[in-house]
C-alpha cells in the first residue's frame, strides 16, 4: 500500500463540464478519446488510488448492510444495502459489484452499480462502468464506453454532515458478511 509505483497518483484533474471537441471516429469506442475532461481511467490507475486512509472491500468479499463513516472506501468486491460516506470518496473498482444507493462526496465507478448515485462534488463513470440508477451531482464525468441507464441530474446536492472521523468507516454492527471467497487470498 505504501510502495506505490513511481508516478502513481490518483486522478485529480478537475472536471469543468466543457463540451469537448468531437473526437475523430475510431473503429472501437473503447479506444476513442474520453469525452469528459477527466483523465482516462484504467483498472490499474483505480487500484493505485487505494491509500492508507482508505478502507477497502476486496475482490472476493461480499458485504450486506449499511456502510457509514468518514473514511474513503474502495470496493472491489460485492456490497449490497446502503452506502453513505457523505464526506468521502467512494471508488467502485473494476471487479466491484454494488447493489446499493451510494451517497458520498465523490463517487468513481469502474465496475457495476445498481442503485442511485448521489455526490456532493462529483460522479465519474469510467469506461468499463455499468450503472443503473439515478445520478445526481453538481459535476458528472463520463468516459466513453460507460454503460448507463437512468436519469442524470446535474445539480447542487445537499449532503448531510459527514460522520465524525472517530466513527468507523464500516458500521460493523450493521454489516452482515455473507461470504468470503478464500480463493482470493
Amino acid at each position: 500500500m505504501w510502495n506505490k509505483p513511481t508516478g502513481a497518483k490518483p486522478s485529480s484533474q478537475d472536471f469543468n463540464g466543457a463540451v469537448p471537441p468531437p473526437s475523430k471516429p475510431q473503429e472501437m469506442p473503447k479506444s476513442s478519446a474520453p469525452s469528459s475532461s477527466f483523465a482516462p481511467s484504467t483498472p490499474q490507475s483505480m487500484a493505485e488510488t487505494v491509500t492508507a486512509h482508505m478502507s477497502k472491500i476486496s475482490s472476493g468479499l461480499k458485504i450486506q448492510g449499511e456502510i457509514t463513516g468518514s473514511s474513503d472506501l474502495y470496493i472491489d468486491g460485492e456490497a449490497q444495502g446502503k452506502i453513505r460516506l457523505t464526506g468521502s470518496r467512494i471508488t467502485v473498482g473494476p471487479n466491484g459489484r454494488v447493489q446499493a444507493d451510494i451517497e458520498a462526496r465523490e463517487i468513481v465507478v469502474e465496475g457495476s452499480v445498481q442503485g442511485n448515485l448521489k455526490a456532493g462534488e462529483r460522479v465519474r463513470l469510467g469506461g468499463s462502468s455499468r450503472v443503473q440508477g439515478m445520478m445526481m451531482a453538481p459535476r458528472i464525468g463520463i468516459d466513453d464506453g460507460a454503460r448507463y441507464r437512468g436519469k442524470v441530474e446535474v445539480t447542487r446536492v445537499e449532503m448531510a454532515r459527514p460522520t465524525p472521523a472517530s466513527e468507523p468507516a464500516i458500521d460493523a454492527e450493521a454489516l452482515k458478511p455473507v461470504s468470503v471467497n478464500s480463493d482470493d487470498e
Binding site: G17, A18, V19, L125, I140, I142
Partner: peptide
C-alpha cells in the same frame, strides 16, 4: 449510449 458531450450539451 450515454456520452459526456450529450450530457453536457443538454445540461448546459
Amino acid at each position: 449510449p450515454i456520452w459526456q458531450a450529450t450530457v453536457t450539451f443538454f445540461v448546459d
